[in-house]
């Protein structure tokens, strides 16, 4: 997915001489191609994220298209107010990249982990939120963001989990719909996932019968009718995200269920980070397991919710 990101970025910069990449002294090696091919459009703003977003806003005001890169614990979390006032309030066109979202930086601890970024941005007007699951979705998200001319946040989580979409599927324009990965809208169980957790949802879907899997690469704006459509036949719904269960995908679906006639009888299980920090150090897989988000732990947790349809028993 990171290669796809780098490719998209270089391509976009070549097509638009006014595209400026700003990094807060992060992205070692990630921008090698960009610097080689579009060096004059690269700018390291130093370890000064607040100023970097303000500068990006100033550049956007005078006709440039800023792409602002940071780790998601800094962009958007450290600079939330700059995003709110300098970019969103002004309705400026800019792309913010938050890399390493979730618990990717498992060994570094809470400062470099970000499980609140979607929640923080969802409550801001005038911002789009993207959470691609693989290289294909990265391409969709990147071009959708650029074409939208809005302030956009692209959340880049665990990037080496392989492909979700096996062939280069055509992007569902304008990305307002959940993307069907497995099964059908009529299935009794709906798994709705975003980002790195789509892969886990796909693995778990094999262990029950009648499961549809949906990926949501763009969490905001998201057409509520489209959510209704993919859960209309479902009795049980599970959301999967490497993010807090408060304010992210689980909340988006729960909010919809609360007002949606079609799925009134459906119940929801929201799988995500359960309102706590990662207290211990360890590998990514270890931390995901500790948060109950490994496929194994989730299979156990879901057994209680989904009942005896578990094929593996």
């Amino acid at each position: 997915m990171r290669e796809a990101f780098s490719r998209c970025l270089v391509q976009a910069a070549k097509a638009n001489a006014r595209l400026m990449l700003l990094t807060g002294d992060h992205g070692y090696a990630l921008f090698d191609d960009f610097r080689k091919e579009c060096g004059s459009q690269y700018l390291n703003a130093g370890v000064a994220e607040q100023n970097m977003v303000g500068v990006a806003a100033g550049l956007a005001k005078v006709g440039f298209y800023p792409v602002v890169y940071g780790l998601s614990s800094f962009v958007p979390i450290r600079v939330l107010e700059q995003i709110k006032m300098d970019l969103c309030y002004e309705g400026l066109s800019a792309l913010l990249i938050g890399d390493g979202a979730g618990v990717v930086y498992s060994y570094l601890g809470a400062s470099h982990q970000s499980t609140e970024d979607i929640a923080a941005l969802r409550s801001l007007p005038n911002v789009s939120i993207y959470s691609p699951a693989d290289a294909t979705e990265m391409q969709w998200c990147f071009s959708d963001a650029i074409e939208s001319r809005r302030t956009c946040y692209l959340r880049m989580g665990k990037a080496d989990l392989g492909r979700v979409h096996l062939h280069e599927a055509v992007s569902p324009a304008p990305l307002a719909t959940p993307v069907r990965v497995l099964g059908d809208a009529g299935d009794e169980i709906a798994f709705i996932a975003t980002g790195a957790m789509v892969k886990t949802a796909m693995i778990l879907a094999q262990r029950w019968q009648g499961v549809s899997v949906w990926s949501i690469p763009r969490l905001k704006p998201l057409d509520p009718d489209e959510i209704d459509r993919c859960i209309s036949g479902s009795r049980k719904i599970v959301t999967f995200e490497e993010h807090s269960i408060h304010g992210g995908l689980g909340s988006i679906v729960a909010e919809r269920l609360a007002v949606c006639d079609a799925a009134r009888d459906a119940t929801l299980f929201s799988a995500g980070i359960d309102n706590r920090f990662s207290d211990l150090c360890g590998s990514y897989d270890y931390l995901m397991d500790r948060h109950g988000l490994s496929a194994e732990k989730l299979q156990t947790r879901l057994r209680a919710f989904l009942g005896d349809e578990d094929r593996s028993i």
Binding site: G54, A57, V62, Q82
Partner: peptide, 30 residues
């Protein structure tokens, strides 16, 4: 800045100078 004639939305202090720096940088590059 929604008011024509005002360039930045400020008052939350420490924002305007950065935005101004970005505008100056943009003008220089152009």
């Amino acid at each position: 800045a929604h008011v024509p004639g005002l360039e930045v939305t400020s008052g939350s202090l420490g924002h305007g100078l950065s935005v101004g720096v970005g505008m100056a940088l943009g003008a220089k590059r152009k």
